[in-house]
């Protein structure tokens, strides 16, 4: 009597584990909400940025004396106005988050080694955070006529002691 050979079902590979682990999804969609929010943010921030950036370019390059008027005093004058402070703040935050999220998706798409992806993301987040914090500080603490150790340093238009 010959023994029956062990014949496996041809489509049972997901149970036997022959499928490479690189195709197996981990977790149960826990981060889906974040990915959806990121997707939505990219579209909404993109629309707002078009208005902000073209408004910024128009005011800086076209209005009045146009591009020739841009100097230290021009920027100082703009940032003396809370409207332009908030305009530039919104532009900074939206552009940085929009850009950083775009680079994040590119890293996730193309960096196939886990450690490489991790470190690229660390560098990206650190750079984005540093620029956002520095930029925010500059916009709100900008003083065109600082007095350092009793010495007036600053532009020509600053009040003289």
């Amino acid at each position: 009597m010959s023994t029956t050979p062990d014949i496996r079902f041809p489509r049972s590979t997901s149970e036997t584990g022959r499928v490479s682990p690189k195709y197996t999804r981990h977790g149960s969609g826990a981060k889906g909400g974040f990915e959806m929010a990121a997707w939505l943010f990219m579209r909404l921030s993109g629309i707002v940025l078009v208005v902000l950036i073209f408004g910024h370019l128009f005011v800086n390059l076209m209005v009045g004396h146009g591009v020739h008027a841009i100097d230290f005093g021009f920027v100082a004058g703009k940032w003396a106005n809370p409207f332009w402070q908030w305009w530039d703040l919104a532009m900074l935050w939206l552009a940085m988050l929009h850009g950083a999220n775009g680079v994040r998706t590119i890293i996730n798409d193309y960096a196939d080694r886990d450690s490489l992806r991790f470190w690229l993301l660390v560098v990206l987040y650190a750079a984005a955070t540093a620029i956002i914090i520095l930029g925010t500080l500059v916009i709100f603490t900008f003083d065109p006529c600082p007095v350092i150790n009793g010495v007036h340093t600053g532009a020509d238009f600053c009040p003289k002691p």
């Binding site: 999804r25 969609g29 981060k31 889906g32 909400g33 990915e35 798409d109």
Partner: peptide, 14 residues
């Protein structure tokens, strides 16, 4: 929709 609202679901599409 819940299954496809995943990190590896529809949001992966570029």
């Amino acid at each position: 929709l819940e299954i496809l609202n995943d990190k590896e679901g529809v949001w992966r599409c570029r």
